[in-house]
């Protein structure tokens, strides 16, 4: 893997460290905490109480959680070396377009493949718990993605670099300085390749990660479709969603 032009090994190392540090500092739970919580499940009664909530209440609750997680992704982005050197227009475009991708990648940390459950509001939940949302296809896609991503067994360093690479996608529409972002992404991918080599992983592992990108994109689009439909049916509730959520997922 040749180094990008004008880029030293020292710089790749600096990027690796900054991205990993940022990922760890902006992850709500550490891997140890997640391991400890993995068997704290919602009881059947608790699950039923979520299932019998109204769609409005459940959407509101999920929107609040997603908004909270977005704030962490913004902080993650800010600490990736080079991100804040981009013009603010591009920073906002990258975040609006990529924060859901990063959230989905991060979700596989909070997924337990043994019982197909995911951490939600302090306990692990099955996909059925989210029935009231009226988006079974979206919820099932998220769980399926978490399942396939967890099989890749990314280390924290790999996940950090993969998240950064996805966030720094130069093909997002309306970007001003595509070249600058392209160079940054290239460096992050080199850092990811070096990290995989260091850990003795095969080339296939990177291919497996990259092969998930179209699925990430389709889930992001599905979320927007579902949100638009919800907005049509329940405009007043959608208006009370957290302002940051509306800002990021508004048209």
């Amino acid at each position: 893997n040749p180094l990008p032009e004008g880029c030293s090994m020292l710089e790749i190392e600096r990027i690796t460290q900054s991205v990993l540090k940022s990922h760890i500092e902006t992850s709500h739970y550490s891997t140890e905490e997640l391991k400890r919580m993995a068997w704290t499940l919602y009881s059947p009664e608790e699950t039923r109480s979520f299932q019998t909530k109204s769609a409005e209440v459940m959407w509101q609750q999920c929107a609040v959680h997603i908004t909270n997680a977005i704030q962490y992704v913004v902080e993650f982005a800010k600490h990736i070396s080079g991100f804040l050197d981009l013009c603010q227009n591009d920073q906002i475009i990258l975040l609006k377009a990529g924060c859901m991708d990063v959230l989905l990648i991060r979700m596989c940390r909070a997924y337990n493949p043994i019982n197909n459950t995911m951490l939600f509001d302090g306990k692990f939940a099955t996909a059925h718990l989210f029935k009231a949302l009226g988006c079974d296809d979206l919820v099932n896609s998220v769980f399926d993605l978490a399942k396939t991503l967890s099989r890749v067994q990314m280390s924290e360093e790999e996940m950090a670099l993969f998240s950064a690479a996805v966030l720094l996608s130069p093909d997002r529409p309306w970007l001003t300085d595509v070249q600058k972002i392209q160079k940054l992404q290239e460096k992050v991918y080199v850092a990811l390749q070096r990290c995989l080599q260091k850990e003795g992983a095969t080339e296939q592992k990177l291919a497996k990660m990259v092969s998930k990108l179209p699925i990430l994109k389709s889930i992001c689009n599905l979320h927007i479709d579902k949100l638009e439909f919800f907005r049509l049916v329940h405009p007043e509730t959608a208006y009370t969603f957290p302002p940051l959520y509306r800002e990021v997922f508004g048209s």
Partner: peptide, 20 residues
């Protein structure tokens, strides 16, 4: 800028997420 007021604020402030 007005449309993305909160994102602008988050990008400019130096607080950590725990303070948000």
């Amino acid at each position: 800028k007005e449309k993305h007021k909160i994102l602008h604020q988050l990008l400019q402030n130096s607080t950590s997420p725990v303070d948000l």
